[in-house]
Amino acid sequence: MPPSNPPTVRRQRLGAELRKLRERAGMSAAAAAGLLGSNQTQISNIEAGRHGVSADRVRTLACNYSCTDEALIDALAGMTGERGRQWWEEYRGTLPAGLLDLAELEHHAAGFRIAHAIHIPGLLQTPEHARTVFRQVVPALPPHEVEHRVSHRIKRQAVLYRDNPVPLTAVIHEAALRMKFGGTEIARSQLRHLLEMSERDHITIRVIPFDTGAFPGSGQAVFYAVGPVPQLDTVQLDQSHGPVFLDAEAQLQKYRTLLERLEEVALEAEESRAFIHGIERSLGRA
């Protein structure tokens, strides 16, 4: 069977975690192949995310790798794939693959922790705000691609509205709240949207005011997707060439600590809501 093309970040992550288990067990790829009645090439393709693998085979491998973490095994088995075409696949070939991987990551996440200093988090943007952001991309995007990206971004937000919405905690710096992306009317609408979203039980928005001064991680945006178990958490960072995904334990611990420190210096939710409302009022009445 030819390798799947292209492998998604989710499938690559499953393969990487299976490789970690095999290496911790001190087992070669050839020996692992013997457990499945297969060959070393197939194991290599599974571990690289080029081939899918069934839940039963994941459990067989984990058992023979002497993994006793049942929660991790269940989570890995659950990553063996949803059957059928997901909504983000309609954008394959028209948007960068990394944006599709981000949508898939969000779809399967158990929670979000986000920190932004300059931009409003994408999951909380209005269409007009998002359109303004995409019109500033370098090199400039043609109008139809701007609309593709806006459509994709808004569809990603469905994870916050479904029957089992994903919990989200966002720490946003005052600078992002005062940036008049698209002008006063669009900025006011964006702030009102933040206030409305902050009223939802599963969404917490906290603000870091200018008066706080220096704070950790001030120069970057962080998107932390909580997995079904801590080992399967993922950090996504925005880069000019597209999203970057991090999952090494040392990296995850670094960003957990960073987010904890950001939340320590941010205003509480009610104070943050009042703060945002104050900025919205300062823009004048519609």
Rank of each mutant, 00 (worst) to 15 (best):
Q157S: 04
L14F: 06
V265W: 01
R135G: 12
D74F: 02
C67M: 13
T234D: 02
G98I: 01
A71I: 03
P7S: 05
A75N: 12
L105W: 03
L259I: 06
Q40F: 02
V166L: 00
S218Q: 10
V222H: 00
R83V: 09
I43R: 08
G111N: 01
L194T: 07
P216W: 01
A109L: 03
S28I: 07
A274Y: 03
Q125E: 12
K180I: 04
Q251L: 13
S54F: 05
A176D: 08
A115D: 13
P139Q: 11
A16I: 06
G227S: 00
V9A: 03
I73E: 01
Q136T: 14
I172D: 01
N64Q: 15
L102D: 00
D233T: 06
D56Q: 14
H108L: 11
A16Y: 07
A77L: 07
M179L: 09
T204F: 00
R13S: 08
R178E: 14
A32T: 15
I114L: 09
R131Y: 09
R156D: 10
I172G: 01
G98F: 02
A109I: 06
R200W: 04
D201K: 05
A117K: 05
S54D: 09
A250H: 15
V138E: 05
E260V: 11
L141V: 03
A250F: 08
A25Q: 06
T126N: 11
L194I: 03
T8R: 00
E128Y: 07
L95N: 11
G15M: 09
P121C: 10
V146F: 11
A130E: 10
K254D: 10
I46F: 02
L61S: 12
L259C: 05
Y255Q: 04
D163L: 13
A48N: 10
Q231K: 06
V159D: 00
H51K: 12
A175T: 14
P7E: 14
A71N: 08
L258F: 12
S4D: 14
V235Y: 02
P230W: 01
I186W: 03
N64V: 02
D201E: 10
A33L: 14
N45K: 15
A269M: 04
D69V: 04
A103N: 08
D211T: 14
A130C: 12
R22W: 13
R135I: 08
L36R: 02
H107W: 11
M1V: 08
K155F: 09
N45E: 12
P2D: 12
L36A: 09
L14P: 10
Q86W: 04
L100E: 04
E174L: 08
H148M: 10
D163T: 14
V166M: 00
F134D: 04
D101M: 07
A109Q: 02
L252K: 05
Y91A: 08
G15Q: 08
H277C: 01
A97C: 01
V137A: 12
A110S: 08
R10H: 10
E70D: 15
V9C: 00
F245D: 13
A176E: 05
A110Y: 03
V137R: 15
E147M: 13
S44Y: 05
R85N: 05
G98K: 07
L123S: 02
G213L: 09
V146C: 12
F215C: 06
R135V: 11
Q220C: 15
F181L: 15
C67G: 05
E145M: 14
V58E: 10
L99V: 00
L124A: 07
E196T: 12
E249T: 15
A140V: 11
G182W: 11
A248I: 03
R162I: 01
D201P: 01
A130W: 11
